[in-house]
Structures are given as structure tokens and as C-alpha cells.
């Protein structure tokens, strides 16, 4: 089955959230995860602080701090899931509570050709 990467973009705005609200968010994710069941291959939050962007300038590698969460939506976490098609992956993402905090980018993993 094809694998799809759900990239969760947000601007890291969880400051000042109360315990009750934290629980509500977690419960909503729990309900969504339950719908997906075994289709979740792996998942993780990415740290909202620090981060480095590298690029090559001539012969040397330039390291810059960033991307900065304050400026725009950055990838805050990901879910790697199994789905039949893009349509199916979209269907599975529709109820994700993340839409209250940002957007989701869906990318299919390049399938390995049968050799």
C-alpha cells in the first residue's frame, strides 16, 4: 500500500493554554488516531525551538538559524500513514484536529519500483 506523509504546519501558538484545553486537544487527536488505527506508520512532533537551515555557498556549507516560528507556518510535526490513494489520504486527514492550528500538506512517498 502507498505511504503518504502528512506535514503539519502551524505557528506554534500554544502559549498560555490551560490544562483543560490541553486535555481537550489531546483527546481530539486520540479520537482521530483511533480512526486511522494501524494506518499510522510513524509520527512525531518536531521541536518548535531552534532548527538550522543549511546551504552550499561555493565550496563551503553555510549554516543559518531557523526557520523561525514567529514569522510563518512551519512544519511542526508529521504523520506517516498508509492509504490507497491521494483521495483516500485526504479522506483520512479530513477530521484531523490540526486544522484548528494550521494546515496540512500531503505528499506521497516515492514508491520503490519493482526490480
Amino acid at each position: 500500500m502507498a505511504k503518504y506523509m502528512l506535514l503539519l504546519r502551524d505557528n506554534g501558538t500554544f502559549a498560555g493554554i490551560s490544562p483543560e484545553e490541553i486535555q481537550r486537544v489531546i483527546q481530539r487527536y486520540g479520537a482521530w488516531r483511533k480512526q486511522l488505527g494501524d494506518r499510522i506508520v510513524s509520527a512525531s512532533k518536531l521541536r518548535d525551538t531552534d532548527g538550522r537551515v543549511l546551504h552550499r555557498d561555493g565550496s563551503k556549507t553555510v549554516v543559518m538559524d531557523g526557520p523561525y516560528t514567529e514569522t510563518k507556518e512551519i512544519v511542526g510535526g508529521y504523520f506517516l500513514i498508509e492509504a490507497d490513494s491521494y483521495d483516500h489520504a485526504i479522506e483520512l486527514s479530513r477530521d484531523c484536529p490540526h486544522f484548528d492550528f494550521g494546515s496540512i500538506e500531503i505528499r506521497e512517498l516515492q514508491p520503490t519500483p519493482t526490480a
Partner: peptide, 17 residues
């Protein structure tokens, strides 16, 4: 305590409770 709750918020949505 607030940090622990916030840590749960970064872990549990992704890895379950």
C-alpha cells in the same frame, strides 16, 4: 507541572496516550 502538560501536548497527539 505546566511544562509536563505541555510535554504531553507534544507527545500524545503523535504517539498516543
Amino acid at each position: 507541572v505546566q511544562e509536563a502538560l505541555a510535554a504531553a501536548l507534544t507527545q500524545w497527539p503523535y504517539n498516543g496516550v
